[in-house]
Design a protein around this nucleic acid. Structure first.
Lengths: 154, 154
DNA sequence: CGGTCGTAGTTCGAATTCGAACGACGAGAC
DNA sequence: GTCTCGTCGTTCGAATTCGAACTACGACCG
């Protein structure tokens, strides 16, 4: 088929998405570092564990949720384990499996970092939108995510 | 003030935004690598140069546009210079300045990579949205970007 | 002119990321 | 059982990123 370039609105949407994503992650990292030693990937990791049943997850499952490589996850879990925020546990039902478990100290670190993190997310995205716009954002990007997860994953 | 957590809609919007951003960048990188040696940051860099007047930009200006550090930009421009896609040029009006200039070969590389890149962006984001949703996305994320750029930049 | 302050781009070391290769285990065919 | 295939988590080397320190230059004041 003929190449379909992006028209003006499409281009605005795409570039705004890309820029906002980069700028927001940059700002979040900056805030977390000032707040006291967590990076954005680490915050995300702890959050996923906190929301998981039993506050624990299989490594492979966690890597998928965080959209990172298995080797990258191994690295971050090791870092967080050294810091005492996460511990590794054997998986009862599968001897190959490793469970990453949130520790009490990890929960504390999350609670300590959350207010500043949420403030940045609110100030620079959430609170700029009204209710309809928020719903549209959740719906449209939710559909994109579903599409990206279901389609050829590699 | 009391801590304001995210309600259900806010959380859906934020998580969808984060996930989609990660997944889309991952997919774009995968596609570009299969297509033949450009990374997403490199594609972005070449695109900005192609859109700039004279197909050239000051290093500092380019770093701001790409939301990257000055040292990171130095590295990427050096890589692209080795590949012949970009060349450095002295800045006439400011002896401190360096201009990154898109070469003819760089333009060719961009034209070669663009169709596959656009296809991924369309399939996984743009073409999933109707016209109103696209406009909303462009407007809301455009406002977020403006806010992020104007507010305390560090 | 000399002095001071801010900016431009690079260099350096440290941290993080990825993909490929590896060893260990589970699932099923036979 | 044993063979084969796929998955799980880690290790390894290479590539990329950042922030801090550095040098060179512009702008402004006296």
């Amino acid at each position: 088929m003929t190449e379909r370039w992006l028209d003006e609105v499409e281009m605005r949407a795409w570039v705004a998405f890309l820029d906002t994503s980069n700028l927001l992650l940059q700002r979040i990292n900056q805030q977390l570092r000032e707040d006291g030693g967590l990076t954005q990937p680490q915050y995300e990791l702890l959050t996923r564990l906190a929301e998981a049943p039993g506050q624990q997850m299989r490594m492979a499952e966690l890597a998928l949720a965080l959209v990172t490589s298995r080797s990258g996850l191994t690295y971050q879990v090791t870092q967080l384990e050294k810091a005492g925020l996460v511990r590794r546990e054997a998986c009862a039902s599968d001897d190959r499996g490793i469970l990453a478990v949130l520790t009490a100290q990890g929960e504390q670190a999350l609670l300590k970092a959350a207010p500043g993190h949420l403030r940045v997310v609110r100030e620079n995205l959430i609170d700029l939108l009204d209710r309809d716009q928020l719903t549209t954002l959740a719906d449209t990007l939710g559909r994109a995510r579903t599409h990206l997860r279901s389609a050829g994953n590699g």
